[in-house]
Structure formats: structure tokens, C-alpha cells
Design a protein around this nucleic acid. Structure first.
Lengths: 224, 224
DNA sequence: CGAGACTTTGACAGATTTCAACACGGGTGG
DNA sequence: CCACCCGTGTTGAAATCTGTCAAAGTCTCG
């Protein structure tokens, strides 16, 4: 998951499997805190998230960290570059995954449908990452946090009466490292959204969106 | 071109054509200021840059701009998402391009070698963009500008006696919009590098790197 | 040569980070 | 069962970096 412009949120599809399960290996499961792979590992499998949330991170020599992406249901993770993984990947919740052999992406032999589906997933990834550049490079802290909540709401939010409830399985510092902020700024921004009655913070890891249109406005930078 | 960690600069290859010219359409040429495609255009061709520099940009509704990437010799641009271009692409210099039909990427029929080469280019793109996230999200202005110069030096620098000369065909605001800064900050940072004798500014569009190791240190955040 | 765009520089403002203290909450062990 | 503890999150104050606004300088192109 990347932070893409809310305006181009695509129609919500049910999590579309890349291919019928006939051809695939059996489902993989992970417990919270378990790593799926590490940076530098040889890529043998790609994975489509069936349920749960993954966190993809990359480290700088001096310890600075960037959360590259969160893997939400429907996302595909593990694209190789030069045959290797270029991020660490950890489960934040119980996660179910559908593995696909790397070979299905890199040489379509055997299953052209699956090959195409994986390729299209890679191309979607490129486009989504381009959106995310815009966010990292040009948005304010408030816009970033609001955008983040909007995307999460779209992707994994649940209706709760008139409102929408979003679970945040990641820590504040995960969010900060994803958005290019500090934990303090993320915390302050959430507080501010709460005080504006745009969201309510039900528990540390549960946010209720009370005024989605206001949140969307903030995400798009319509001033205050 | 993205700003990738200097430490993982790969061995310098001569600009490798993706495939022998036998199969391809003839070379395309662009003049400075000419657009190769616009956001929203249907993708018919991908292009590998043979010589010159392209600029890929995306606009936010309120006019804020992000330069997504610069297309340097060897780079491949124009990857489709849902069949469409997701950036504008303009030539900054005289540019020569090798076009490849989109179909060669999306269904390898006809030329499996080329299909694989384009796919690998897309996968490299994903990895390089992940590096760029780190840069946008976690680096200071000085680190960004220094990293930018390092990568340009690697990719398109020329030896000039003991030093290395880098042409900057893009404007300061292009650099700013690429790095997530303002033109003023880019300008100030370059001035500061000049005053530290790390670079010399030969002309607005030509920088001479006098102390590459110092520049690399700055890029990696070794304090000062 | 002149006009306009781009770049540089300066002063100032403001957003975000930094540093520090405190609050909260879940888990453990007594 | 309760108290304690430690990691995580929140809040505050000060510092700093970068952005903003304004003006002067420079280059390019007609």
C-alpha cells in the first residue's frame, strides 16, 4: 500500500486473486512479528496478501529507517531486483498469503495468465509508487497523515454505524517512517484531527473517521 | 534516474541496449522542450534513452509538481498502468530514444528476449524507486543535493583532469521538485557546497566535483 | 542590446524536529 | 488479584531547518 491521491482511488474490488488456486502452492501463514524475508535474500516466491498486514522496510547505514510500504489484502509483495529482495518484510498481524513462484513472473512458461497477472501487479506498483513520491516530497504533515488515513479507510476500513472504523496495526513510528515524519509529529497530528472532531481515537490502534469529507479535504491540501 | 544509495552504485555498464535493433522500430529523436507523452495518454510505446535527458513529472490539482524521475541514457521510461501513462515526459536536451512496442512488455509473443529485458527493467525500476523513498522521506536538504550530484556523476559525469564534470540540463526548480525541496534551498545548498570547495559551479548548468569523497560523505549523512 | 526568465541572496516566518518529561496500558511476577 | 515496570504514546518547550517573500543579479534569446 502506498499513499496515492485520494481523487484517483479506484473502484473497490473484492480482493482479486491473481489466479485460480489450482496452480499455486498452498497458503502461507505468519504470526505477528514473523519475518517473511529479509533484504538481500534470494527471491524464490512472490506473495499476494490474502488477509492481515505486512510491513516492508529498508534501513540506512546510520539506522534511519524508511517503511517502504504496508502490504494490505490484495497487495503483492516480493518483487525481485537482480534476483534479490530489497526490503525486510515483517507481519504486523496474523497474515495469510498466497505464494507464487518467482519463475511465474520472470518466465511465463507454464501459466501465461498468472505471468500476466504478476506483471500487471508490478506495473501497478510502479504507478502507485509514483503517487507516493508526490506525497513524500510535497505534502505537509497534516496532508500526509490525512492521506494515510483516507487510503487505509478505503482499503481496510469497516463501516461502524454512520462512521468508518480503521484499524492501525502498525506503531506510530511505523507510520512516521512511512510518511517521512517523526513519531511525535504523527501523534500531534492525530491529536489535532481528534480535537477537530474529524476523527476519534477509539484505542491506540483504532481510529474512527467521523467526517470523511473533511479528512479528504485535508488530504488534498484544501487549506485548513 | 532515481537517487539511490551511493553505497550500492552498481558497476558501470555501457548503456546496454535491451535488444538487438533487428526487431525494433527506428530510433526516435526529440528536441529540448518536446513532449514524448502526457499523463493520461494511452501507452503504445516504451522507450529506452540512448542519449540525452528526459524529465518525468506529475502534477497535483493545486499546481504543486513532483518530478518523478529523470530519464538518463540507459533508463527505460513509459511503463503503463492500466494501459495509460501516469506522468508527463519532456525532453530537456536533444534526446535519442529506442522505442519498443508496449505489447512486447505485456505479452512476450514474438520476442521473449525483449519481453524479459523490459520486465527486468520494470523490476529494476521498482527497486530504484524504493531507494528514492528513503531519500525523499529521510534525508536532509544537503544529503539530498549531494546524493543527487553523486548519482549524476556516476551516470553521466565526465572526467575533466583530476576532477569530474557533471552537466545539469534541468533547472533548479526541476531539481527542487525532484528532491522535494524549493529552488531557493537547492540554490543555497549548491552555494554552500561551492564555498566548502567540494564542488565548483562552472556555469549554471555545469558542476565540477572537486572532492568526490567529501560529497559522498555528505550524501550518506556523515554529519556536516 | 533589451526583456524576461531563471538564479542567487537575504531576512524572516513557520513547520517540523529535537529533547525531555509525563501518561498510559498491557504483561509479569509477587 | 494487584502492583510494578517497561515499552509505547502524548504533550510541552525550545531549537533548527526549510520555506516564504522580496530584491538584486545573471543569463539567454530574440
Amino acid at each position: 500500500m502506498y499513499v496515492t491521491s485520494p481523487c484517483e482511488v479506484r473502484p473497490k474490488l473484492p480482493v482479486a486473486p491473481l489466479a485460480s488456486s489450482t496452480y499455486q502452492a498452498t497458503e502461507t501463514r505468519l504470526k505477528p512479528g514473523a519475518y517473511l524475508y529479509f533484504e538481500g535474500d534470494e527471491v524464490e516466491w512472490l506473495y499476494q496478501v490474502t488477509s492481515g498486514v505486512l510491513r516492508l522496510t529498508r534501513l540506512l547505514a546510520d539506522g534511519r529507517r524508511q517503511v517502504i510500504a504496508f502490504g494490505l489484502p490484495g497487495d503483492t509483495v516480493g518483487f525481485p531486483a537482480a534476483g534479490l529482495h530489497h526490503t525486510d518484510c515483517e507481519a504486523l498481524t496474523d497474515v495469510r498469503l498466497q505464494p507464487f513462484r518467482r519463475a511465474h513472473l520472470e518466465n511465463g512458461e507454464g501459466d501465461p495468465k498468472l505471468h500476466t497477472a504478476l506483471l500487471q501487479a508490478a506495473l501497478r506498483e510502479i504507478s502507485a509508487m509514483q503517487d507516493h513520491f508526490m506525497m513524500l516530497g510535497r505534502k505537509s504533515a497534516t496532508e500526509k497523515v490525512a492521506s494515510f488515513l483516507c487510503v487505509l479507510s478505503e482499503r481496510v476500513g469497516e463501516n461502524l454505524g454512520a462512521y468508518r472504523q480503521v484499524k492501525l496495526p502498525m506503531s506510530r513510528s511505523d507510520i512516521a517512517d512511512f510518511l517521512g515524519l517523526t513519531t511525535e509529529t504523527v501523534s500531534r497530528t492525530l491529536t489535532q484531527l481528534r480535537k477537530s472532531q474529524i476523527i476519534a481515537i477509539d484505542s491506540i490502534h483504532t481510529v474512527i473517521i467521523q467526517r470523511p469529507e473533511a479528512l479528504l479535504n485535508l488530504a488534498e491540501g484544501s487549506s485548513d
